[in-house]
Every structure is written in structure tokens, then in C-alpha cells.
């Protein structure tokens, strides 16, 4: 049994975000992190490994420096890492990305017992599209927004969250599940794990590695193969600074209440 976890390295948008004058993101000035939801997927994989003895493989598409992130994930207990990297893959939208990642997963081979885990969405694009699109490209059933996962033989039961409650869903392996933060608390790297991680298997899948897969075609990968294009990107205007009221006492509050009443807001 294998568990394949898809992860993404993303700019840390929780801190200061730098935007270039032309409206693009100044990525060079920003720290990168492992996408938070993906760490929940890694943790879910490690817990399934403890239960079943499965091999856990982490896979990411990105530039070569993403090795550092993958090694850190190996230090948490993941057995093997694959970086999918090549200039032919650059500029891919979610459709093209899922074609490439699905081809890479095909290369690893999807067998009867296997499970593929993804984070729900990445904090740079917030699309939540790549997980379901990989599942479609691999012809596998999917369950998204997983808050609980239990495996019993070839049946996986998932608590799938909705805005107003949840669904309990049963699905047979092989399948793809996207994970949310309510699923678990990701473990830290262990000291031994950090010591060992650079001796664990690490591979790069480039265009040459994947090119024989029918999913890999110039018309379906990279910038040219992406169905969506950016028409314009821009920064939203800052709303004009409003009124800072003097003081913080009852008189201040009375003034504010008066202003609201004058605008018929109360």
C-alpha cells in the first residue's frame, strides 16, 4: 500500500506581502512555507502509515529549491520524495498542473490499496481545484473537505464538512481525499528525522521522465496548455482613511452614536 501526498511550496501571505509596481507579486522578497492544509494531509498519511505500514511518498511540482521543503517533510517521517520540475511545466494553471501531477502519480503507479491525499487548497491561489482535477485525470473517486478519515480494509470512511454540517461518505481505494485543518495537528520534525532526511530517496521527475504519459502533451501542459489566462492583474485601492475619533471615553462614544444616527445607520 502507498499513500501519495501532494504538497505545494507557497509564499507566506500571513506576513508582509510585497507587490511590484506592475501589480505582480514580489516573490523574491517573501518567505516560503509548506502550504498549511498540505501539512494536514502529510499528518493524515503518517497516521495511516502507523496503522497500516504503508509507504508514504510526498510529491510536489515546483522549482528545484523546493527540495528543502520536501526534505523537511521527509524529516517528519515521510519515506520518499518526488519533485516534479521542468521549464515545460511553468505557467500551468490548475488544469495543466493536474495533468502533470496525475502523470507523475501514474509514474509512481496507482494500485488497488493506494490513497492520494492533498490539502484542500493552497494559500497563494485559494482555488481548491488541483485535488479534484487530479482525481478526474486519474479516473479516481474523490472526497474533499475531509475532517476525519478512517480506513477499514479497502473502504475509507470520511467525515466531509459542509458549511451547515457534514456528510459521512464511504469510498473504496484507490481514491483521492483533500484534507482540511480540522483533520489533525501536524507533528513536528523529529531530531532523528532531520538527521536522516537527506539519506532518504529523493527523485526529480522532469519532462523527459513523464513525456510518454498521454497526459503530457504540449497542448495540455504549461502556459500554452492552460485553458485559463490572466487578462489583467491589479492591486485593489486602499479605502481612504476614515475619521479617527478623539479620545476613548463616553463623549467619544456619544459622538460616534450621533454620527451613526445622522447617517440613519441606527
Amino acid at each position: 500500500m502507498k499513500i501519495i501526498v501532494c504538497v505545494k511550496q507557497v509564499p507566506d501571505t500571513s506576513g508582509k506581502v510585497a507587490v511590484n509596481p506592475d501589480g505582480t507579486l514580489n516573490r523574491a522578497s517573501m518567505a516560503t512555507i509548506t502550504n498549511p492544509d498540505d501539512l494536514n494531509a502529510v499528518e493524515a498519511a503518517l497516521q495511516l502509515k502507523e496503522q497500516t505500514g504503508a509507504e508514504v511518498i510526498v510529491i510536489s511540482m515546483g522549482p528545484p529549491p523546493a527540495e528543502g521543503m520536501l526534505r523537511e517533510i521527509q524529516a517528519r517521517g515521510v519515506d520518499r520524495a518526488v519533485l516534479v520540475s521542468g521549464r515545460e511545466f511553468g505557467g500551468s494553471d490548475t488544469y495543466a498542473t493536474s495533468q502533470i501531477l496525475a502523470a507523475a502519480i501514474n509514474k509512481l503507479g496507482v494500485e488497488k490499496d493506494d490513497v492520494i491525499l492533498c490539502g484542500r487548497q493552497a494559500i497563494d491561489g485559494d482555488t481548491a481545484q488541483v485535488g479534484p482535477q487530479i482525481a478526474e485525470k486519474l479516473g479516481l473517486p474523490q472526497v474533499s473537505y475531509a475532517a476525519e478519515i478512517t480506513k477499514d480494509g479497502d473502504t475509507i470512511t470520511v467525515k466531509r464538512m459542509l458549511e451547515d454540517g457534514y456528510m459521512t461518505i464511504k469510498v473504496k481505494t484507490p481514491c483521492l481525499i483533500t484534507c482540511i485543518k480540522e483533520l489533525n495537528t501536524p507533528r513536528y520534525m523529529s531530531v532523528g528525522g532531520v538527521f536522516d532526511c537527506y539519506s532518504k530517496p529523493y527523485e526529480i521527475f522532469d519532462y523527459e521522465t513523464l513525456k510518454d504519459d498521454p497526459l503530457i502533451d504540449p497542448s495540455t501542459i504549461g502556459l500554452k496548455g492552460s485553458p485559463t489566462n490572466i487578462f489583467k492583474s491589479f492591486t485593489p485601492p486602499q479605502k481612504g482613511v476614515g475619521m479617527m475619533l478623539e479620545g476613548a471615553d463616553r463623549a467619544t462614544c456619544d459622538k460616534l452614536a450621533g454620527l451613526l444616527a445622522a447617517k440613519h445607520l441606527i
Binding site: D93, T94, Y95, S98, G125, D126, T127, A128, Q129, V130, G131, P132, Q133, A135, E136, K137, Q142, S144, Y145, R160, M161, L162, E163, S226, P227, T228
Partner: peptide, 23 residues
């Protein structure tokens, strides 16, 4: 773009081979 729409949309777009813009 509900939890259901965001499950359905990408799956349909991938099957139809068309573009989908999220949220």
C-alpha cells in the same frame, strides 16, 4: 463557491477540458 460547488466545479472542468476560475 460552496464546499459542494468547489468539489463539483473542478471535476466538471477537468472532464470537459475547459477553464475554471475559482471563487
Amino acid at each position: 463557491a460552496t464546499n459542494i460547488g468547489r468539489d463539483l466545479g473542478p471535476r466538471c472542468a477537468a472532464r470537459l477540458h475547459t477553464g475554471l476560475c475559482a471563487d
